[in-house]
Design a protein around this nucleic acid. Structure first.
Lengths: 310, 310
DNA sequence: CTGAAAGCGCTTACAG
DNA sequence: CTGAAAGCGCTTACAG
């Protein structure tokens, strides 16, 4: 079968008997032009009949950037929250004529530059960082400042409510802007609640090292009665290590996760955690990056999912 | 600060005192041209000094497609295997001058079409399906035929070796080309090993429904002594449901996972599973999609990670 | 109300 | 050995 040539604006113009310019004006709905209703209708009909779709590459060359947004995400943040965030971001960008593409990998300026040169996206977002598109927002548009602060407070607040005062914060073993923000916000929450500043420790991937890390931390901080984890993944590592050390959760130490991953619900004991509405955060990020108003998209408050571990 | 204009080929040509064409020939290393060493050197020096990077959008418009490959992946397949696959695919594409972008979402022809029109990628891959770029490979280039067959056989083989004959296959509750392939290959393995064809059942997300699904299956198949799961996620759902039903793993029923997710290692009992070298599969897929030879990239055999659940 | 034309930055056949 | 020129498909200021 012959490869059917792509339908271009020229084809639409020819089929409707107008110039390419006129066809373009009609399809772009250009308010500076006044095209007769008859002409407009003919052009629309021809475009529909031929199945015309504008060539995004040509348009991007002309306009200077493509109607594409790229999200960079470090694989260590993959989880139910990032999935929901991506879903919301994608849906909202699509609704506004843009496409979302995700780049998985560590954040490097070289990689970001390559993306810029390769497809000239309208903007590049980094999951967990402010976005890199000329403007310089203070947050990620979806609760990365107010939201994350509120959620960190909720996590610590739950433990305090349940009688804990000596609380620790368990982190992944590679740090980033996101882990730093979390440490800072957790410390602020503790202060506001009148409990000592949580001590932090890193928990590497499962294995002898992760058990040793938890053991060493316990030895240095024997009075800690509850551990707040950076994520459910980290919480599960902690619970597993505590079990290996012969400790019982929550009797000996309480553990609370963050972000409600499926595996937390299936753990023994089932993981108490915090649920955030990732979808709305993604939608808000989309609005912000396109310079659109996001006021009708109220970020949902987070909520504690109380199960067995705390 | 003034936005510094992008460096174009024109700038390089002007800076080195040659025409744009000549500069282009030098930078493209065009074998049909014979450029004097002096000229070539001057152009390269100018390009380096100015930090010239070709505009991918302009190039794509000219060449008909961009040096970009898009991977579509359904969120239900997110896990350690898909992460490794993406890592390998990305690394190998980058090494060959291409960029990888991932689209997360259900597979729909409409979405795929939008991608095509938006950035005209060199190819679009669907995780778990053959690729959609004119050619029609039978597999995904990284073990989706031979590889998946071998791995399905390994999973069932382990159970048979450990004395199981009545085996079931636990699947996610949304089916796809990938689940179908898995069912088919598992049935073939069972036949080759001389045990009855495994009965299949779906396990929905955690909750009352997933427990009911496992209970119903057990009632209908009381003689099943081992369950092979489509993935570690599904295996964890099954183990949790069995626990809720008062059954003990592996004493009452053995469970084996697939793909070695971190959560499996942390479960109680720790999940026995199968590990595949996702990275190499991704690299092979990259080579195939670019039409490059992949013979030096031998797919690694899978291996059983024997823990406690089977 | 509509059309001819320029130009985004690149690649490459063609002419010299 | 090197340059002038066409053209990928679009948008949009300009002329009529």
């Amino acid at each position: 079968m012959a490869a059917s040539r792509r339908v271009t604006l020229n084809d639409v113009a020819a089929a409707s008997g107008v110039s390419r310019a006129t066809a373009g004006f009609v399809l772009a709905n250009d308010p500076n032009q006044s095209i007769s209703a008859a002409t407009s209708e003919r052009v629309h009909a021809a475009a529909a009949r031929l199945g015309y779709v504008p060539n995004g590459v040509a348009r991007a060359l002309r306009e200077g950037s493509s109607r594409v947004v790229v999200l960079e995400i470090d694989p260590q943040y993959d989880g139910s929250y990032s999935r929901g965030f991506i879903r919301g971001l994608d849906a909202e960008l699509t609704a506004h004529g843009h496409a979302l593409f995700v780049r998985h990998g560590p954040y490097t300026d070289r990689a970001t530059d390559q993306v810029l040169h390769a497809i000239a996206p309208r903007a590049i977002l980094r999951f967990g960082e402010s976005y890199q598109a000329g403007k310089d927002l203070e947050d990620f548009g979806g609760g990365w400042r107010d939201g994350l602060a509120a959620h960190a407070a909720l996590q610590i607040g739950y433990l305090v409510e349940h009688g804990h005062e000596r609380i620790a914060l368990a982190l992944p073993d590679t740090h980033s802007a996101l882990t730093e923000a979390r440490v800072r916000l957790t410390a602020q929450s503790a202060q506001a609640l009148g409990v000592p500043r949580p001590a932090c420790f890193d928990v590497p991937r499962p294995g002898a090292e992760s058990v040793a890390a938890v053991e060493a931390f316990r030895a240095g901080h024997p009075d800690v009665t509850a551990i707040a984890a950076f994520s459910d993944v980290i919480a599960l590592r902690v619970m597993s290590a505590l079990r290996d050390l012969g400790l019982s959760v929550p009797a000996d130490v309480a553990v609370i996760g963050f972000d409600d991953d499926e595996a937390g619900a299936l753990a023994t004991p089932a993981l108490t955690t915090l649920h955030r509405e990732a979808d709305v955060h993604g939608r808000r990020a989309a609005r912000n990056v396109l310079g659109l108003d996001a006021h009708d998209l109220a970020p949902q408050p987070g909520r504690i999912v109380a199960r067995e571990s705390a």
